[in-house]
């Protein structure tokens, strides 16, 4: 049985299609990445899977339970870390997790221990009695992950888990998340628009404008690009290009001041080029494809524009400001 199964899922907001006939399956015990730019329909899909929103057409099931017909069964079997923080900042870490344990009916004899174990797991045990408002962004995020684990869900949803975190906190959070499928026997469904973070996934789906445009393991998707890409600069690019084409039978082309060509055998290809072109090679470099390149190849644009990124930052700043002014 699939951990998550989605068929023909469609959702509209005021006539605008947010998600359009989306299909995918998530295998149990895997990390599944749901990738796409901001506004592609990732959060809408998560909200439907988490029973916070109904779909207009199609069906979705989690752990074998139908999201619209058996919402309570779905809710019991999942944990969620939302994109925006949902901790109560006026309570301590321990209280936040303890109340969560009550909500999910963790039995009394193990309640206290489960909560303490979860806080220990993310390395915040010494600060468990501090109010959340004294926590840093990275610590809050980790604590949200810990809270979602208290009731031992079978599927964990992570919506942009590292949004707004500094690189160090991001790396820290990932070390915890990666351990989960094995240590807790859990399936992870995560969304992100940081393509490099999706490399840890077993399978990914790329969504754009509400439709799925690519599916598969990261290595499969990257192999669509025809392997690694070699960038070369010679004394005379035109002459070198001719030699590469004629002598090595490689379809290369000149882009800017570089000769560019894909290759499936990058390890043997470079020595061959240097033997053929000899001293005229000024520089040569090899680039392994990233998931970003996959997105670029399919859609013709970058997944992440600077504009979207600064928008996130702005929104986060406004929230922080309002939080401060509300306190006064």
């Amino acid at each position: 049985m699939s951990a998550i199964s989605v068929n023909g899922l469609t959702k509209k907001f005021n006539g605008n299609v947010a998600v359009k006939e989306v299909n995918f399956e998530v295998k149990p015990g895997t990390i599944f990445g749901f990738l796409g730019p901001n506004g592609a329909g990732k959060t809408t899909t998560i909200n439907i899977l988490c029973t916070l929103m109904g779909a207009d057409a199609g069906s979705a099931s989690v752990n074998g339970y139908d999201c619209s017909k058996e919402p309570d069964d779905v809710r019991r079997s999942i944990g969620i870390v939302f994109q925006d923080p949902t901790l109560d900042k006026d309570l301590t870490a321990y209280e936040n997790l303890l109340y969560h344990a009550y909500l999910y009916r963790v039995p009394k004899p193990v309640r206290r221990r489960t909560v303490e174990d979860a806080i220990r797991f993310i390395g915040l045990y010494e600060r468990k009695d501090d109010l959340i408002k004294t926590y840093s962004g990275g610590m809050k995020r980790r604590l949200e992950v810990a809270r979602a684990l208290v009731h031992q869900p079978k599927v964990l949803f992570l919506d942009e888990p590292t949004l707004g975190l500094d690189p160090q906190s991001r790396a820290g959070l990932w070390t915890y998340i990666r351990r989960l499928p094995e240590t807790m026997d859990m399936t992870i469904f995560m969304t992100t628009h940081y393509m490099e973070e999706a490399e840890v996934c077993d399978d990914i789906c790329i969504i754009d404008h509400g439709s799925i445009i690519a599916k598969g393991a990261p290595s499969e998707l990257k192999s669509m690009l025809g392997g690694d890409v070699v960038y070369l600069i010679a004394d005379d690019n035109k002459k070198a290009l001719g030699m590469i084409r004629d002598l090595l039978d490689i379809e290369a082309e000149i882009k800017g001041d570089e000769i560019v060509f894909p290759t499936k055998k990058s390890d043997t290809c470079i020595p061959e080029i240097i033997r053929t072109l000899g001293d005229s090679v000024r520089s040569i470099r090899l680039q392994r494809p990233t998931l970003n390149d996959v997105f670029l190849k399919i859609t013709g644009r970058e997944i992440r524009s600077e504009h979207a990124d600064s928008g996130d930052q702005l929104r986060e700043n406004i929230r922080a400001y309002r939080r401060r002014s509300d306190r006064q």
């Binding site: 069964d73 969620i80 939302f82 949902t86 969560h100 909500l103």
Partner: peptide, 15 residues
């Protein structure tokens, strides 16, 4: 307040 600062979501996704 709970809607604005997210805690309501924590309650709403609970069974």
């Amino acid at each position: 307040w709970d809607k604005e600062f997210g805690y309501m979501k924590e309650i709403l996704v609970a069974p």
